[in-house]
Design a protein around this nucleic acid. Sequence first.
DNA 1: TAGATTGTTAATCGATTAACAATC
DNA 2: TAGATTGTTAATCGATTAACAATC
Lengths: 206, 206
Amino acid sequence: MDEKPIPDIVVGRLPLYLRALRHMISEGRQLTSSQELAERLGISAAQIRKDLSHFGEFGKQGTGYNIDFLAEQLERILKVDRVWNMAVIGAGDIGSAVARYQGFANRGFKITLIFDNDPEKIGRRIGPFTVHNMDQIGTLIKAENIKVAMIAVPTAYAQEVADQLVSAGIKAILNYAPLNINVPSGVWVEYTDPVTHLQHMTYYLD
Amino acid sequence: MDEKPIPDIVVGRLPLYLRALRHMISEGRQLTSSQELAERLGISAAQIRKDLSHFGEFGKQGTGYNIDFLAEQLERILKVDRVWNMAVIGAGDIGSAVARYQGFANRGFKITLIFDNDPEKIGRRIGPFTVHNMDQIGTLIKAENIKVAMIAVPTAYAQEVADQLVSAGIKAILNYAPLNINVPSGVWVEYTDPVTHLQHMTYYLD
DNA sequence: TAGATTGTTAATCGATTAACAATC
DNA sequence: TAGATTGTTAATCGATTAACAATC
């Protein structure tokens, strides 16, 4: 009776499929195929069909996929058929850029809180947000029932901030600090570090 | 006689190993083991040993790895035992944050050029850099023999900027625009898009 | 209808893990 | 020496691909 969980590597590709589909929608397209998606994404058509088959049957033989419909299904599966409010911890260069980033809109996320511990920054505005004191993390995140946060503080403070976020009920953390952090099970962490990407590529350069 | 290429997935983990080792160095540590690295990174010790074994024998039985030595070896393998000058295209929020980011130093990278096409921005300073006109991309990148670039322009312009970078001789691109771009073989592209990470995590939330 | 494309199965391919001799 | 840990082999596990019946 055990339902096999979907492989995480499959889940990780769904946002890429969704991103490509949204782009097609912006081009006014209505139909696509596993073949076309595969070419755009640089992966195989068979893999796309296999990945999607874990979740249902979304296409029509001979025709392909209705782009709007498939995008809606992926949004539902990824739970971005709603808006997740987010907190940003750290109002330095990265935190500020994140807070002003227009790319979250219509993709399921919205920043609603930003924190720093620098008295110079607390109370200042960044875009539409007022920077809150970090000692308010627990109170405000709980009050607004926020589940998703981004860490944009100096490396040395990332673990301690992560601990506070977990205490405040955060369940998903995107960590911009170039450091692995430990969190209890049931809390998810992803990392974004430009240098690891760059070092991956330089391996292949002369 | 054909040497088997190292699996790309292995290459992609080396920067994570290096990052953990550098962190240990900053803690004043001298020795580590595959076991300890594995715990910090959340992967298996066997995998770390197997990955490293593609490149040589860096440890000592019974003792483990000399952290400085292993870090040096990984830096050599990843070709970050030198400094790669980089160009940033786009001086908006992301480009500006990237240009001010302190995290490239001592990890093998240094920004030396930043471009935008907004007359308001051209000639202005961002941190230590003067924003150049995008019509100078080819000239300046060739003149400085730059091989690595970051794209931080609006999605709609990312492909066109990528084409210009390729013409200018760029071989590695880190793309901040949430869009797949096409480049000829011999040019490497990696992507960084916070939303794909966030959507990956929300799959697992309620 | 003929052509196209899906969803799925089975085969292949590759990555991870377990185990241990070697040895520091 | 005894204990610890590597590097490597073989086994396991899982992911990708090829192929095709089903069918729009």
